[in-house]
Design a protein around this nucleic acid. Structure first.
Lengths: 167, 167
DNA sequence: GTTAGTGTGTTATGTTATAACATGTAATGA
DNA sequence: TCATTACATGTTATAACATAACACACTAAC
């Protein structure tokens, strides 16, 4: 109890959390941002964001549509894609390319260039902020290029799944 | 002529090249690799690789299929996807997720974790090797995670296009 | 000469994403 | 007040991307 190995804390990027707090915080953040920017947090937009926050993992557009349908919204594809695009533009949602999925941003005010760490076995996804990822961008080599958007995804296997693997 | 600004050289990641040499080198490399690994560089596989090397930019699977069709190969989707998967596994092709496209690896023997720099305007794509990208992986934060594959894509605007932009 | 492994071909279908147009509603301002 | 606009959502149809499942040919190994 006196001393913990540093690794024990520093590596737990897939760790659980108090979801009630997380959910509430996220809603508050998006509400504040929308007011500040004079954007409309409509029922549909709110619902899509809630669906993503609730699940806390990447969902496909068609999964989102299904959930929308069950709560009385339209469930034709453009509905989801439009709202997702909007939320992405404003930094509240990211697309995880490797999974064709969408996930709520875990820290809308910070991560402009987030890294996603994806376990191919359990399919858990962790968003690691710019500061913590150890990622250094851009290099002098590409300083003549203006980066607007990054897709950084690290796929592999988390320690839990690796320990569980047979061979 | 005596002195060049360092930037002039170091930033030209989109620079042209002697394509004849590039093409020949690439074919030689893949031939050697296939012999060494006792793999079959069949006419189909060779053709797909040649198509990608020739164009030197990401092509969609269906674009490749069209080119295959014109040269007497079958052009049903699985043909392309199977060969592409094979070439990807062996490191001769990369998938550019942001464009749903496939591109020949510019340095099969080196870049295990390449970075792709993509201009959203001219759609040029440069592959930057691990060493040159300035990318540092992995961080202590994620050291408990075994990275098997990375998707690192930087989208933005290259200096040529930026200078050409009106606004 | 049967078997196993590999490569290609074919049909059908699944999955992901967008184009184009219609409708509704609120704010703006002549 | 009522045309104009900006924005949000709805709808239909289709485009674009990808894979499943099965068939067949060829080669190598036993």
């Amino acid at each position: 109890m006196k001393k913990k190995k540093k690794n024990e804390n520093s590596s737990k990027i897939f760790l659980g959390h108090d979801h009630g707090v997380c959910f509430g915080d996220a809603i508050t953040q998006i509400e504040d941002y929308f007011i500040k920017k004079k954007l409309q947090l409509t029922p549909l937009r709110r619902k899509v964001f809630e669906i993503l926050i609730e699940d806390h993992k990447p969902l496909g557009a068609y999964e989102i549509l299904e959930k929308l349908g069950k709560t009385g919204f339209s469930s034709s594809p453009p509905i989801a894609y439009r709202v997702l695009d909007f939320l992405i533009v404003h930094g509240f949602v990211h697309k995880v390319q490797g999974l064709n999925g969408f996930i709520a941003c875990s820290n809308p005010n910070h991560s402009h260039f987030p890294t996603f760490v994806i376990c191919r076995k359990c399919e858990k996804v962790a968003e690691v902020s710019e500061e913590k990822s150890g990622l250094k961008l851009p290099s002098p080599e590409i300083s003549n290029f203006k980066i607007e958007k990054t897709t950084i995804e690290l796929t592999g296997i988390c320690s839990t799944c690796e320990n569980a693997e047979i061979r």
